[in-house]
Design a protein around this nucleic acid. Structure first.
Lengths: 157, 157
DNA sequence: GAAAACCTCACCCGAAAGTATGAATCACTC
DNA sequence: GAGTGATTCATACTTTCGGGTGAGGTTTTC
């Protein structure tokens, strides 16, 4: 959390430095303060959106499907958590598992969860060993059999 | 969308006015530009976070509809061959598709069907373009939705 | 406040998957 | 016999996956 604040500080400092550089470089003395404020507003709006999305993802945890909550009647998911616990699969790993089952690439998962590609690879790798499979396609099959995919558990092929 | 931009503009204008008012009210002449920038950064960070969260919510509520669609009915697979014909998927390609859905690697499929690895790759590649997907995991999803895995693939792992 | 999970990310390396192009064989049709 | 489409296979290349290792950072728990 404090790291986020730090990043914001650094970003602001960098932006300030950049603006000063522009001023020096092109000898522009009369850049209006409104211009500065506009730039900063734009920049920090983007930063804010990014932080907001990231925060939303962290707290809403999109993957494990709150969607399941909206279709509860079909899959009561009685012992999903029990199964997960039995296999030692963490929350984050389950999220990754769901996204894998939806056919996303590791890079896409990384983008969606605001993670590094390496992190996703770590999660999936741990996941595979816990599911005792070798490939992600097998992981999908296994997950379906175990009923670990709340949302697609309904895809009762 | 443009309304959002408008709001941002208004917000910036209001903030500017507020700052000018402060300046006038308390006769503070030497408020550094960094101070202004800090205020603006803070303000628009918050605004950005808000917009980001709002955006996230909008898209989170949109997503479930897709998943719901896959649950809707247990499609009786009226005519598998008709679907295959419509998509231009040949018999051999369908075989490969089923094996892919079972989580086999290309090499395993090649061994099982007494084919070369290259051949399996050709089939799967053609398959992906016909299914309009990029990866085999997506192909599995698509195939399930289209009911192409009714017979053999099943859910046995 | 220390320990134990969990989460995050990096680097390297090899294997698997996927793309693109071309070509040979076979069956079936006009 | 030519044409068409399916099947088979090759080579070469790029991208993605997955394993292994290590190293902070955070959260939870005792």
């Amino acid at each position: 959390m404090k790291r986020t604040v730090l990043y914001y500080g650094i970003a602001l400092a960098l932006l300030l430095g950049f603006l000063k550089y522009i001023e020096y470089r092109y000898m522009v003395r009369d850049l209006s303060i409104e211009f500065y404020l506009g730039i900063v507003a734009l920049f920090f709006s983007g930063l804010g959106v990014w932080a907001g999305l990231r925060w939303a993802n962290k707290h809403a945890s999109a993957a494990p499907k709150d969607t399941a909550k909206s279709i509860v009647f079909l899959s009561p998911t009685p012992d999903l958590e029990a199964t997960l616990a039995k296999l030692g699969i963490s929350k984050r790993e389950h999220e990754v598992l769901c996204l894998i089952a939806e056919g996303h690439s590791n890079q896409e998962i990384a983008d969606q969860l605001f993670l590094s590609l390496n992190t996703v690879k770590s999660h999936s790798s741990n996941l595979f060993s816990k599911l005792d499979v070798k490939r992600r396609t097998q992981a999908i099959q296994r997950a379906k059999d175990l009923g670990l995919l709340s949302s697609s558990a309904g895809t009762f092929g």
